[in-house]
Simulated scan of single mutants.
Amino acid sequence: MFEIADQLLTALDAGAPVAVVTVTRVLGSAPRPVGASMAVVGGSAATQQRVLGAVSGGCAEARAHELATGVLAAGGVCTEHLGFDEWAFATGLSCGGQLRVLAHELDPSRIDLIAELRAAAAGRDAALALVSRGPSDLLGRVVTPTGGDAVLPREVLAAVRAELAERTVDGRCGSLEASGDLEFAVLVNRVRPRLVIVGAMDVAGALSRLGGQLGYRVSVVDARATFATNQRFPDADEVVVEWPARYLAATQLDRRSVIAMLSHEERFDIPALQVALAGPAGYVGAMGSRHTHTRRVALLRHAGVSAEAIARLHSPIGLDLGASTPMETAVSIMAEVIAARTGAGAEPLATGSGAIHCAVVPA
């Protein structure tokens, strides 16, 4: 739901009715995680409706649309299980996995729910839990970090709020079984992770564009004011004229942060890598040939960087895709970033076995 928060708020602020179908549980191989949502905005007639978001890779959208339209027309809350059997195949879900979805109408008077949607739309941390299984009168009830439906038992509210606080730290969406017969779908939105690009070169422009599309807050850093300009990098969230090592030492990074060293100049790279490899960033990569990498490692060792820290360095940066253009190079870099985050082997899917859609590792 959070991935379409801005569009939901636009519709609600305009006074339009909105029904949302949200994935509340995933079993096996499925294309979208818990929290993925489709919304239908408008009246019951198809010509009056707008569809936002998706709950699958396209295979269950028609059924989700039917559920949302039904909620808009008749009100209430409903759940449905989409699985790989004869009935589910008729709905188009043929990927072999199973989804449980919840359809309900958004209530614009729910101040706590709307506050979480506004936080997500603004790129801030947000979290909520929906009752996805239990007594019919509790289905669709909402718990937020600071609020919750009073009809829910007090001890349940406290336990779910504590879980929301914990999951907001690590970004884990998923199912949560509470006392009794209650089950919640926990939805979490994290502040955008950071992508710091060192070196105002042509690949930096493509990487800042792609990084932004993948949900990163992008900073381009270079000590040369002639090259580090907003005009050259319109897709970056910020362009900073500063010595990279000084910037990296002062800026706030965490384990989700990505640092891509593209400057290819030792006077920038070595001091900056000393800082980067000593920090918390989950991915540190540096561009250059294999010869450059060998010399870079020697210089880092001479500067006192430990072997353990150097082992964290992805260099030469990126996966071997045969990339040649700036955008192809950016794709190879971000592909390696994703693989490093998820622990995937980055092999062709056609040569592998097992589930394609595994548990999602939050960025």
Rank of each mutant, 00 (worst) to 15 (best):
residue 1 M to R: 01
residue 1 M to F: 05
residue 6 D to L: 06
residue 7 Q to H: 14
residue 9 L to S: 06
residue 10 T to L: 12
residue 14 A to L: 07
residue 18 V to D: 01
residue 18 V to C: 04
residue 23 V to K: 00
residue 23 V to I: 11
residue 32 R to P: 02
residue 33 P to V: 08
residue 35 G to S: 10
residue 40 V to C: 01
residue 43 G to R: 02
residue 45 A to I: 03
residue 46 A to S: 11
residue 46 A to Q: 12
residue 47 T to M: 10
residue 52 L to H: 06
residue 53 G to I: 00
residue 56 S to W: 00
residue 57 G to M: 10
residue 73 A to W: 07
residue 76 G to P: 01
residue 77 V to A: 00
residue 77 V to Q: 00
residue 78 C to T: 15
residue 79 T to I: 03
residue 83 G to D: 09
residue 94 S to W: 05
residue 99 L to Q: 02
residue 101 V to P: 00
residue 104 H to M: 05
residue 106 L to I: 12
residue 107 D to N: 15
residue 108 P to L: 04
residue 108 P to F: 03
residue 108 P to Q: 08
residue 109 S to N: 13
residue 111 I to F: 09
residue 121 A to E: 06
residue 123 G to A: 07
residue 124 R to Y: 10
residue 125 D to A: 15
residue 129 A to N: 07
residue 131 V to T: 04
residue 132 S to D: 06
residue 133 R to T: 11
residue 137 D to V: 14
residue 139 L to E: 04
residue 143 V to H: 03
residue 149 D to S: 12
residue 152 L to K: 02
residue 153 P to T: 09
residue 155 E to S: 13
residue 161 R to E: 07
residue 161 R to V: 06
residue 164 L to Q: 03
residue 164 L to E: 03
residue 167 R to C: 05
residue 173 C to S: 15
residue 180 G to F: 06
residue 188 V to P: 01
residue 190 R to Y: 01
residue 193 P to F: 01
residue 194 R to E: 12
residue 195 L to A: 05
residue 196 V to F: 06
residue 199 G to V: 03
residue 199 G to E: 05
residue 200 A to T: 07
residue 205 G to P: 02
residue 209 R to E: 14
residue 211 G to S: 10
residue 211 G to A: 07
residue 215 G to R: 09
residue 215 G to V: 09
residue 216 Y to Q: 06
residue 220 V to M: 07
residue 221 V to I: 14
residue 223 A to C: 11
residue 225 A to K: 13
residue 225 A to E: 15
residue 228 A to L: 04
residue 234 P to I: 04
residue 234 P to A: 06
residue 238 E to Q: 15
residue 239 V to K: 03
residue 242 E to L: 12
residue 245 A to T: 05
residue 246 R to Y: 11
residue 246 R to M: 13
residue 249 A to D: 15
residue 249 A to V: 12
residue 249 A to E: 15
residue 251 T to W: 04
residue 254 D to K: 12
residue 256 R to K: 13
residue 256 R to F: 09
residue 260 A to E: 04
residue 262 L to E: 04
residue 263 S to H: 14
residue 264 H to T: 11
residue 266 E to K: 14
residue 276 A to G: 12
residue 291 H to P: 05
residue 292 T to E: 09
residue 295 R to A: 15
residue 295 R to C: 09
residue 297 V to K: 05
residue 297 V to C: 11
residue 298 A to M: 13
residue 299 L to E: 11
residue 300 L to N: 03
residue 302 H to C: 10
residue 304 G to I: 05
residue 306 S to F: 01
residue 309 A to M: 12
residue 311 A to Q: 13
residue 314 H to M: 13
residue 318 G to D: 07
residue 321 L to S: 11
residue 325 T to F: 02
residue 326 P to E: 05
residue 328 E to P: 05
residue 335 A to E: 08
residue 338 I to A: 11
residue 345 G to K: 12
residue 346 A to K: 10
residue 348 P to H: 13
residue 348 P to T: 13
residue 350 A to W: 14
residue 351 T to W: 13
residue 353 S to L: 09
residue 353 S to Q: 14
residue 355 A to P: 10
residue 359 A to T: 14
